[in-house]
Amino acid sequence: MTGVNIGILAVQGDVAENLSATRMAMDDLGVEGVVSEVKNPEQISDLDGLIIPGGESTVIGTLSLINGSLKKIKEKIASGMPVLGTCAGMILLSKKAKDRIVGNMEQPLLDYLDITIERNTFGRQKDSFEADIQLEKIGVHKFRGIFIRAPSVIEAGKNVEVLSKFNEKIIAVKQGNIIGTSFHPELTEDLSLHKYFVSLVQKKN
């Protein structure tokens, strides 16, 4: 097959938004390839890049564990496949997640990003907010951050590059080819982050 093969993990959450943002990013960049929804291990094994969307991390994790997708994603990450996780997606990529109120969680995680997550770090839905943030390290000077019951990173290991902060809280990280964000780039019309991810996938390919 020519071009890149990018999948959006389609268990639960805002899958369609990531699908269309990725498609538009590829068109803008003139990158050839396909973007599709993926749900099972067979589909995941063919991918060059994966996006884990926003949604409920407990739901996406539990269901991906049941059908073997989680194991397959782990293998693909180990072989160097780029992954972008937004909000719930970043939680799933992390090594450890706890909730601001409920405390330590036993939820299935991919255990890759060397970070500890605090879920619902800014509070409940009423505290969800929009703000302009910066991602200077990847050349994005201004980006509309949509934070919905968002998590933040409260501890990051040596190999983790911090891409953005909101006041003192870490809201975007990168470790190798894996990117995690607290916010939802797929809910804005700004394609910068999806374009950055597509070019990572293309480079790796």
Binding site: A10, V11, Q12, G13, D14, V15, A16, E17, G54, G55, E56, V59, C87, A88, Q125, K126, D127, S128, F129, E130, A131, I146, I148, R149, H184, L187
Partner: peptide, 18 residues
């Protein structure tokens, strides 16, 4: 900004397929 349409509808988008 809090309570915008993007944040309210966006919250519902996170529930999809659930």
């Amino acid at each position: 900004r809090r309570g915008t349409s993007t944040l309210k509808r966006g919250f519902a988008h996170m529930l999809k397929n659930g």
